[in-house]
Amino acid sequence: MRLAASSDMVIAAILIVAMVVIGLINPAFWSLDNLFSLLKSNVVIGIMALAVLLVMLSGGIDVSFTAFAVAGMYLTVRTMVDIGYDGVVLPLLAATGIGAALGLVNALIVHKLRMIPLIVTLGTGAVVRGLVLGLVGTSIVNINKMPRELIAFGRSDILTMTNAGGTTFGLTAMLPIYLGLALVLHLVLTRTLIGRSVYAYGASPEAAKRVGFPIGRTLVFVYVTAGALAGLAGILQSAMIWQANPRDFLGWELDVIAAVVLGGASIFGGRGTVLGTVLGVFILVMIKNSLILMGIETTWQRVVVGGMLIAATALTALRDRKALV
């Protein structure tokens, strides 16, 4: 507990330093307008990061979540368009359910065949992406066809303000959804036995088995929850950008995994916190955002994020080794 807490403090300190530095370079950073838009960019990647955190805590690495997000989003929106349904709650549940069902497939393969999660999710991710494109379609559902209520939901704000120029801007209503999910996951991970079983299994699968944890249940919990979060993140994305693109989220694995590692989770499992991950996501989004403000090309952004991933992994590895002495 103490170690985790101190780890979160370090990340928070890094975040504050980074914010001060970025604010000095670009004073516009501190404008509410910019901060609100930053927070908005946290939502989808943040929910995905929660999914990845969960898998990483259990000692695995998930790269299928982008495909599951696409499946949840595209299947739901296409069906809505095809049958002419409009609404919010049902589509959200549908996308979440699709993600959860796909997550169950991951869980069963990992558990029954005792395969390495990275390979399993690499495979299921590719299969799901391929099936969506091959069986459902490759065309983008654009704003003109997107269900109205879904767009309205994605546009809704919890706070609206007007800046000096007279244009209005707001804080997205998706943010409380993300933070609410984070809070629930935090409570589940720290206060319940199923949550602790994830840490235990990640720390030592063999010991978890011997102590009598129901390993199958733990893995189902991990991958179904991760899949559900991915599916939900997918449909929220389409609601927020007003289109459903079956080729969306390509390359997001890098950003999301980097954010989780930046948040202090160990790729070896058993170590990491929701708070750290939320902070890690914010740092990553903020740095990418400042690179855009500085006019740096997207290709170079990937270089920066890749470098951050390696640096953060090296730092956490050093920390873990130190703890072992």
Binding site: M1, T192, L193, R196, A200, A203, A208, V211
Partner: peptide, 30 residues
Amino acid sequence: IYQDFSLFPTLTVAENIVLNSLLKDGRRAI
């Protein structure tokens, strides 16, 4: 108590000690 002790290295001493009993008692929360 196996030779490798079957403990959870990243968890605290307190948690390692109580997890067994919580499981045994079929508890859901900690």
